[in-house]
């Protein structure tokens, strides 16, 4: 039994390691006025395919995942997504003017040059916490990724 459990444990190891989601280039835009929501961006890659279920941060009462839908008449509307599918091996990018994390009920203004933690919960990979740098209001992405 002991051997069997050991073998079973070892067998799951490779799956555990590739079940991880790579979270890259996270950043948020500085907010100008207190009480206004902020926006955060990042890229997600899962080699095995996964699903982002929720996002949270101690600096925000709620973090919502928004997609931008543009109608033919040019009206952009935010569409709230309950979850985000990460197809196998594909990098899903959240970027300005497109999909973004809306940080609601901020406990403080997001000041350029500071960082805050952001926890992403995935269906398979579980919780991953990353440090998100706050860039200037005119930023379009972290250095080197623009």
């Amino acid at each position: 039994m002991k051997h069997f459990l050991g073998a079973a444990f070892i067998a799951t190891l490779p799956t555990l390691s590739i079940a991880e989601v790579k979270v890259s280039a996270p950043w948020a835009r500085a907010t100008i006025i207190a009480g206004r929501p902020g926006a955060g961006y990042l890229s997600l890659t899962s080699e095995t395919g996964d699903r982002l279920l929720s996002v949270s941060s101690p600096v925000a009462g709620e973090v919502m995942l928004h997609a931008v839908e543009s109608g033919e008449n040019g009206v952009s509307r935010m569409v709230h997504l309950d979850a985000l599918d990460l197809p196998e091996g594909e990098t899903v990018t959240l970027a300005p003017g497109d999909m973004h994390l809306m940080l609601m009920q901020l406990t403080q203004k997001l000041e350029e040059g500071t960082n805050f933690p952001l926890t992403l919960t995935f269906e398979t990979a579980g919780e991953i916490t990353v440090e998100v740098p706050v860039l200037g209001i005119a930023a379009t992405g972290p250095e080197g990724t623009e």
Partner: peptide, 17 residues
């Protein structure tokens, strides 16, 4: 509008640039 966290600051920063 100022409560818009994504497109508005992106576009205004773009105009500023």
């Amino acid at each position: 509008f100022t409560y818009c966290p994504d497109i508005c600051p992106t576009t205004l920063a773009y105009l500023a640039n």
